[in-house]
């Protein structure tokens, strides 16, 4: 149920930012650290080190954050009411997965104004896999009246390592969810700030121009020579940092897992851009995916040898 004390413009069903604030309040109340977005280009909230890396190792972890996500191929020059090359995911990660995770998730829906006695919420099988992250999990896509509003996953493996313990991951598609609670058909019509009249700012006001510009960039102009070079550079840098990070040359403790992982993220995004530019053939595609997976695997191994990854300092 929506907090009745909220003024109209702060309500999650009236304002895009109100939706984010309601989710922040909800998950902060459940003991999550509320983080800010990762400051790099990523394809999904899962890439944030707060999920990928923190899902590995034995230490408990609870976090919630918004992650701007870039999918260069999904650009539609601002002409499609449902598809964006840049959008927001709301990401929650809870390790170990609590026994009442489904109930928590449903309560979060109520907090943003979805009445569970009025709406048909369903958990429909959808197993998740990220080939570049070497990660997979089992779970569902969560339906509200026939629309997929979230992804619910029990991580089984990340970076090629078994998750021990298993983390539960919730990913809300914020634009879609906001369109639903606001009753809007076109993403650009979403009320961003909850105000009306002259003060109203829409999603289109904020992002339409960006969608047009980035679609041109992603499909037509992104400098592929530079990108190929960047991919190689990121790959080499990751390898260098990984190598240099092992303390005393033994493989017991690693001192630079996160900087190395940044380069892995970089490589992944550059690959997505190259893919959108259509310069990677079907057979090459697989080999690029494998190269990124190798990086993420090595970063995962390094992370496990850090304090936050469960290897205490001597």
């Amino acid at each position: 149920m929506i907090d009745p004390a909220l003024p109209p413009h702060m309500r999650p069903d009236k304002s895009f930012q109100g939706l984010i604030l309601a989710l922040h309040a909800f998950w902060a109340d459940k003991g999550c650290v509320v983080l800010q977005p990762y400051d790099m280009e990523v394809g999904a909230g899962t890439f944030h080190p707060a999920t990928t890396l923190r899902a590995l190792g034995p230490l408990p972890w609870k976090a919630a954050y918004v992650q701007p996500s870039r999918r260069p191929k999904d650009g539609r020059y601002g002409e499609n009411p449902n598809r964006l090359q840049h959008y927001y995911q709301y990401q929650v990660i809870l390790k170990p997965s609590p026994a009442d995770l489904q109930d928590l998730y449903l309560a979060s829906l109520e907090a943003i104004g979805i009445d569970l006695r009025l709406h048909d919420v369903r958990f429909v099988e959808d197993d998740w896999e990220s080939p570049t992250l070497g990660a997979w999990g089992l779970g569902w896509e969560c339906w509200c009246d026939g629309m997929e509003v979230s992804q619910f996953t029990y991580f089984q493996q990340v970076a090629g390592f078994e998750c021990a313990p298993v983390a539960g991951e919730l990913t809300y598609g914020l634009e879609r969810l906001a369109m639903y609670v606001q009753g809007v058909e076109n993403v650009y019509d979403l009320n961003f700030n909850g105000r009306e009249g002259d003060e109203k700012v829409t999603y289109g006001d904020v992002f339409l121009q960006a969608e047009q510009e980035y679609s041109r960039h992603n499909f037509e102009h992104a400098d592929t020579d530079m990108l190929f070079q960047q991919f190689r550079m990121a790959e080499e840098a990751a390898a260098k940092y990984l190598e240099a990070g092992w303390e005393d040359g033994t493989k017991a403790r690693h001192l630079m897992a996160q900087p190395a992982y940044d380069q892995c993220i970089k490589a992944s995004h550059v690959f997505n851009l190259l893919d959108a530019r259509g310069v990677i053939s079907v057979t090459e595609r697989q080999s690029y995916i494998l190269r990124v997976r190798e990086l993420s695997r090595a970063c995962g191994a390094a992370w496990l040898a850090t304090a936050a990854g469960g290897t205490p300092a001597p």
Binding site: P58, P96, S97, L138, G139, Y154, Q156, A164, P165, G168
Partner: peptide, 20 residues
């Protein structure tokens, strides 16, 4: 296809089930 979940999932003998 089966999975592990929750606190006990670190143990190699943990129960596997289709969902928790």
């Amino acid at each position: 296809k089966s999975m592990r979940w929750g606190k006990g999932s670190s143990s190699p003998t943990t129960l596997r089930w289709v969902r928790p």
